[in-house]
Simulated scan of single mutants.
Amino acid sequence: MDEPEPAAAAAAEVTQLLQRAAAGDRAAADRAFSLLYDELRRQARRRLWQSGEVSALDTTGLVHEVYLRLQAGAPRDFPDRRHFLSYAARAMRGVVVDAIRARQAQRRGGEFERVTLGTGVLESVAVADDAEVLRVHESLDALAEVDERLARVVELRYFCGMTEAEVAACLEVTERTVRRDWQKARLILLTSLA
C-alpha cells in the first residue's frame, strides 16, 4: 500500500485536529494552529509588506492577534485547512482595520487609551493610505451582498496579500477565475469608492 504524500498527510492531520477543536479540544486547536503557524506568518508578512513596513515583531504580533481572536469565545467549526485560513484572513483584516482606527483616533487626540494585551501590536505599520484601507473594508460588506466570492477574493488579495494561486486554492477555484473575479471586484470597488 502506498504511503500518502507528506502534504496530504499533513492536511489530513490538520483536518482531524480542527474537527477535535470544534468539539472543544483546546489542545487540538493549539496543535492545528502550530501546524499552520508558518503559513499564517507568511500571510501576515505579505500583509504587512503591502502596508509598507515589515518587522518580525509585527508579523508575529499579527499572527498572535489572530490566535487570541480564535481563542476568544466558543470553539469554531473549521471543517478543513481552507476554512481555517479563510477565518485567519478575516481576522487579519480585522486586526489591521482596528490598528488603523486606533491610529486615527490617536491623531484626533485619543492618546489616552485603555491598555489591553493586544495594544500596540501594529502601531509601527505605516499604511500608505489608512482612509483607503478603511473604505475598502467598509465597501466589502456591500460587495458581499452582490457577490460573496468577489468579496472573498478582495479580502484574501488585498488584506492578506495572497497570490492568485493561493486564493484559488483557498476558494477551490481556478487561477483564471480568481483573476477575473479580482478585476471585476476592483472595478466595482473603484466605482463605489469614487
Rank of each mutant, 00 (worst) to 15 (best):
F112W: 13
R90P: 00
M1H: 14
G52S: 01
V125K: 00
L57N: 07
R45Q: 11
R101E: 13
V154H: 00
R31I: 01
A74L: 11
T163H: 13
A72Y: 12
H64C: 13
A29P: 03
E113Q: 12
E132T: 09
A105H: 08
G120K: 13
Q19W: 10
R157Y: 01
A27D: 14
E113K: 05
V63P: 01
V167I: 05
A11K: 05
S51P: 06
Y67F: 10
E175M: 11
G120P: 07
E13G: 00
V115F: 15
A151L: 02
Y87V: 03
A22K: 04
V154N: 00
Q104V: 08
R81G: 05
L190K: 14
A168Q: 03
R180V: 09
V96Q: 05
A131N: 13
T59N: 06
D2W: 11
A56V: 07
A72G: 06
C160Y: 06
F33Q: 07
A105C: 02
S51K: 08
R90F: 08
A102H: 10
Y67E: 11
T60E: 12
L187E: 14
T15L: 14
L48W: 06
G109K: 14
V178Q: 12
V154T: 01
S86F: 15
V173A: 06
V54Q: 03
L143D: 12
G120Y: 09
V14E: 11
Q43V: 05
R186V: 04
A56F: 03
S55Y: 08
F78Y: 01
E53Y: 12
F33D: 06
F84W: 05
M92V: 01
V63Q: 13
P4W: 03
A21C: 11
E113M: 06
D38R: 08
I100D: 06
G61T: 08
